[in-house]
């Protein structure tokens, strides 16, 4: 892939090896799932299993390519990412996912807003969560009441007749 000479003496890129393993894993899952399909007896045509097998083969080859690249240190240098903000944002999305159904759009989305703000260094949560809920409620009002979008309802939304 790159013109760089092979330097096997150096340690391979561990993360790249993990990626290669994941790609190979996906290819295996596609092959396994596709082999389970019952193909209807229709004449003279490429069936529904051909493309999945081609894609799985492609992923398999790319996995091998990634292993080679890992040994050649072909991946660009990675930045020193800070994972704490990522945890806050993912936490916010998970919290929204789990609260939307019973607490409604405003509360669930307000938590997401506050957690995201926290990830970017703005707090404290006891201030930003109410702020987020108010913002999300305004958004809900415009889209659900003004534009008839169906969004999950909770106790707050039910206050609006």
């Amino acid at each position: 892939m790159s013109a760089e000479p092979v330097r096997l003496a150096r340690r391979p890129d561990g993360a790249a090896l993990v990626i290669a393993a994941i790609l190979a894993g996906i290819a295996a899952v596609i092959v396994w799932q596709t082999s389970q399909m019952r193909v209807p007896p229709i004449q003279a045509r490429i069936g529904p299993t051909v493309f999945p097998y081609i894609i799985a083969a492609g992923l398999g080859l790319l996995s091998i390519g990634t292993v080679v690249s890992a040994f050649r240190r072909g991946f660009p240098p990675r930045e020193d990412d800070n994972f704490i903000p990522i945890a806050w944002i993912i936490g916010g999305l998970v919290a929204q996912l789990l609260t939307l159904g019973w607490a409604g759009f405003s509360i669930g989305t307000g938590i997401l807003f506050a957690f995201t703000a926290k990830a970017f260094g703005r707090g404290p949560l006891w201030q930003t969560i109410p702020l987020g809920v108010v913002f999300a409620f305004a958004v809900w009002f415009i889209f659900a009441k003004g534009l008839q979008l169906s969004l999950p309802m909770g106790p707050l939304e039910r206050l609006v007749p």
Binding site: I142, K145, G146
Partner: peptide
């Protein structure tokens, strides 16, 4: 815009209980 949409939405579509 949000305000404008809010106002026009509120004027245009009174809401009901289902």
């Amino acid at each position: 815009f949000i305000l404008a949409a809010l106002v026009s939405g509120a004027l245009a579509l009174p809401s009901f209980a289902a």
